[in-house]
């Protein structure tokens, strides 16, 4: 499992990359802290490599069931005012965000 990631410089770059993907601003202190934490945790979870799982099916659901569906029947939704009641900014029935440049 990715031996090279033990290098802390690489890992710090990974922390920055992943924080970007997760949309979390990171300070340099955060990077240092999380690089240390992530390094230790990854080292620990690498023990999973000891197991031969090539022929093992992954478990996505603890209890296997299938075909749980609903009928195409309308149900009442949220009243308009409640839909917007927690909005940090709203106007004209819309959730307002900074201008998006598409």
């Amino acid at each position: 499992m990715n031996e090279h990631t033990t290098c802390s410089e690489d890992l710090a770059a990974e922390v920055r990359r992943v924080a970007k993907l997760a949309r979390i601003y990171v300070s340099e202190d955060d990077v240092a802290q999380w690089t240390r934490d992530l390094g230790r945790i990854l080292e620990y979870v690498r023990q999973l490599n000891e197991l031969d799982v090539d022929s093992v099916e992954p478990t996505a659901h603890a209890i296997p069931v299938a075909n749980v569906m609903r009928d195409d029947e309308p149900r009442p939704g949220l009243p308009h005012t409640e839909a917007l009641s927690n909005a940090p900014a709203a106007r004209d029935g819309l959730f307002i965000v900074p201008k998006i440049i598409e």
Partner: peptide, 18 residues
Amino acid sequence: SAGYYDAYYLRAQKVRTL
């Protein structure tokens, strides 16, 4: 994330089966 999925997440799901 790309490149790590199989090594970490998928492997963990397989261990979950075990």
